[in-house]
Design a protein around this nucleic acid. Structure first.
Lengths: 226, 226
DNA sequence: CGCATACTTGATAGGTTTCAAACTGAGTGG
DNA sequence: CCACTCAGTTTGAAACCTATCAAGTATGCG
């Protein structure tokens, strides 16, 4: 499995302790491949022949597909603690990229995961829980993307993503991803995302301190749109 | 776990052999709950406290959510051989219904699934594969729903659903679900689905022999829209 | 400081939702 | 057997929203 443009690719034993892995992965499993990458760098190996499971340890990763017209479509945004599968074969053309700098992920082959689950019931339970959480994440994303107006979609995305980003529900949150990523993720144009951000600012729901940063000021305004 | 409006609810040992279950489920696991239902009847128990995994054995099932405005949104359409998870708790308000008559499903608690996977590596592998297939299904649905025009969405849905419904890729296929289900699934209004069906008929891509039935006549026309 | 990238705003054409109404088919009861 | 009913489907018209093209602004980096 070749590293493509990644400054760091090591085994887990030699990696810094970013984020958290479920036991026994946190105990330095030598079969894990750890990668650290900057925004835009690919995590998945395009020529890989076997399926992988990736754990996001730090930063943000995006899983996306390239459509026949060349347009990119993000299907999943991964935060630390999230799990994501990446199959190869049968025309499954999904890729994994770092969405922000200093993104760290740990990759295991599906085969290795099954070996680990076979010997450890507690670990198997944890893996199952994380995969089901992945399913729930995709289903919620379908609900967000299926809303009628763009304002509803953006509001839904902000609540969903901010809720996952921090444990502090009440506090203001900053989202470290670009407008283009948001647009690709919720299925609208980036210009429309901009207009929605402006409108939400006007309504006092959010604040835009800097590019690629959104702070939620009034959660209730966003929730009323759903 | 109470049956709600279902004419039949038995254990697997007493049930007819619809569809196929992965070993060892096909060997009459006494902990499975088998339900048979007509279109619109609920499969999930609204007051269940534990998570379930359902195997669709016959017919079509739909997993959906009810939004705050009362509108229904389908997030997954299940065909025989498919697996679907249904958690309870933490505001996960998803439900499972029969989408056509004579739908048969087998339900297992997540706990029971883990007991079975712990003792059977081959079965665990099969379960993992089916859950990952569920993930792929949702991701493809995100791509379909994220397309720009409604005609692209309908064409994508027809190809996806028809491809899952039959092994015979070349033959014409009939889709036994209503316009409303399609509309809820791909995130457009039912009127728009109708107009797209009419347009696709005009272009010679499909034929509409009867209500709630679509035959794909020219697959290439649909594929050119993607 | 200048460039590249990202962000924002404007105008227009095109598509979709919504409301409305007509139509079809299946199932029911007289 | 037929009229009736009802859910599902289809078509129409208008208001609304969004994609697209275009231009301008801001930010970060070398």
């Amino acid at each position: 499995m070749a590293s493509i443009g990644f400054p760091h690719e090591t085994h887990l034993a030699g990696a810094p302790r970013f984020g958290h892995l479920p036991a026994p992965l946190e105990k330095f499993d030598s079969t894990a491949i750890v990668k650290r990458g900057c925004r835009g760098q690919e995590i998945s190996a395009r020529n890989a022949k076997v399926g992988y499971l990736f754990f996001v340890m730090h930063g943000v990763a995006r899983k996306f597909a390239i459509q026949s017209d060349g347009h990119r479509r993000i299907v999943d945004l991964l935060l630390p603690g999230d799990i994501v599968s990446l199959d190869r074969g049968r025309g499954e053309d999904f890729f994994l990229e770092a969405a922000v700098n200093d993104t760290v992920i740990a990759g295991y082959t599906l085969r290795r995961i099954e070996e680990l689950t076979a010997g450890d019931v507690q670990f198997a339970h944890k893996i199952h829980e994380m995969i089901l959480q992945c399913v729930r994440r995709l289903e919620r994303q379908l609900l967000i993307q299926g809303r009628v107006t763009a304002l509803e979609k953006v509001a839904g995305f902000l609540l969903e993503f901010a809720g996952r980003l921090t444990d502090d529900e009440a506090a203001a949150v900053s989202l470290p991803i670009s407008r283009y990523d948001i647009a690709d993720f919720i299925g609208v144009s980036s210009e429309t995302v901009c207009r929605c951000m402006t409108e939400l600012t006007r309504r006092g729901a959010i604040a835009l301190p800097r590019p690629r940063e959104v702070r939620i000021v009034n959660r209730a305004v966003l929730e009323d749109m759903e």
